[in-house]
Design a protein around this nucleic acid. Structure first.
Length: 324
DNA sequence: CACCAAGTAAGATGGGCGCT
DNA sequence: AGCGCCCATCTTACTTGGTG
């Protein structure tokens, strides 16, 4: 890579607009719906280049993990998140490595995965902070490396899709690698999901990009009969977006004994004769609201985990139990 | 022990507008 | 023109658990 400042090209940006995420979507029973991807500890250029050039499953050099085989432009995905990570390293010429990504997002999803497959008599077993149980912590970290992929140890496949198409190390920052993208117009296009105003410049028509991603998300859910979608974070935006994508989708608040006033929402919609459930949950970062308030005398991290444990048992397990 | 992060609300800034 | 107000947008502080 050149010493000069690398910036994303229009072509790479457009390809990323069609990138749907990772996991064995055709067999996935839960699609986790994030805000935007991180960069897995690497920099932006190798993440963009890998997504645009090597992500996906190929047969005779032709991409097959795609809505229109042979082409990325109308929706494609990487079937194996761990292979995806290795492809990012490959751009830098680095050898494969044991996978691990930290953070609250993946660890929470790994806990859900283990709680579904390996319920313990000690019912909060998988929902304790790492120092509480070193063995459980090791299992959770190992499970993180098995998420969003085919041929994993998981008995229920999860897949991951994100609303915004540009991977960033930190969601609060804009980066020089994206200086060709108009930050303000991009943000507006992906935040105001009624799509009533047009945001565009010479680099891209950001509103059309967001509309395209909405259409691809609809195609993703309907093509593979996914029974459960779980959004983490940005509840109001995702609610509006999903209501727009799926006419007939009705959201309502639901009960939580752990957190009676929680902002989470549960929605249901009938698609192709199958009931699709949607859970929108507060992002599991204990240093943020709502966990740092409302928690009485329980530590925020413990509080968030207790909530996710309850949601797993009461609302996730009943939907995916037939597939266990 | 220093650093970092898949949010968010409150405070700061600044343009548009009507009034004097 | 100059002032003050409102609203949209941008910037800052905040806090906890995990990592090297």
């Amino acid at each position: 890579m050149d010493k000069m400042q690398w910036t994303i090209s229009q072509e790479q940006y457009q390809t990323l607009v069609s990138y749907m995420g990772c996991g064995n979507f055709p067999n996935a029973k839960i699609v986790f719906f994030g805000i935007e991807e991180g960069t897995g500890g690497y920099a932006i250029p190798e993440n963009v280049i890998a997504r645009a050039e090597t992500f996906g499953q190929f047969d005779n050099g032709s991409i097959v993990s795609s809505f229109t085989p042979g082409s990325r432009e109308d929706g494609y995905w990487e079937p194996n998140a761990q292979l995806g990570g290795q492809k990012v390293r490959q751009v830098l010429g680095l050898p494969p490595v044991e996978p691990f990504t930290g953070g609250f997002f993946n660890s929470t999803i790994a806990r859900i995965s283990l709680a579904l497959e390996r319920p313990q008599p000690d019912s909060n077993h998988w929902f304790r902070l790492y120092p509480e149980d070193k063995n459980a912590a090791a299992d959770i970290k190992r499970r993180i490396g098995q998420l969003y992929r085919k041929d994993s140890e998981c008995r229920i496949d999860f897949a991951l899709t994100d609303w915004r198409p540009l991977p960033r190390p930190n969601m609060g920052k804009w980066y020089p690698e994206y200086s060709t993208v108009n930050k303000s117009l991009f943000n507006k296009a992906f935040d105001n999901v009624d799509f009533k105003r047009v945001h565009q410049d010479e680099f891209s028509h950001y509103t059309n990009d967001a509309i395209k991603r909405a259409r691809l998300l609809h195609q993703l859910i309907t093509s593979f009969s996914i029974p459960l979608i779980i959004g983490l974070g940005k509840i109001p935006v995702k609610r509006k977006l999903l209501e727009k994508i799926f006419p007939g989708l009705q959201f309502e608040s639901f009960q939580s004994a752990v957190f009676p006033n929680h902002p989470g929402l549960l929605g249901k919609v009938q698609l192709n004769g199958q009931m699709v459930h949607v859970l929108l949950l507060p992002f599991p970062d204990p240093s943020r609201d709502p966990w740092k308030s409302n928690n009485g005398d329980v530590r925020p991290g413990v509080f968030a985990l207790q909530y996710y444990q309850e949601i797993t048992n009461r609302y996730i397990k009943p939907v995916v139990e037939p597939y266990l």
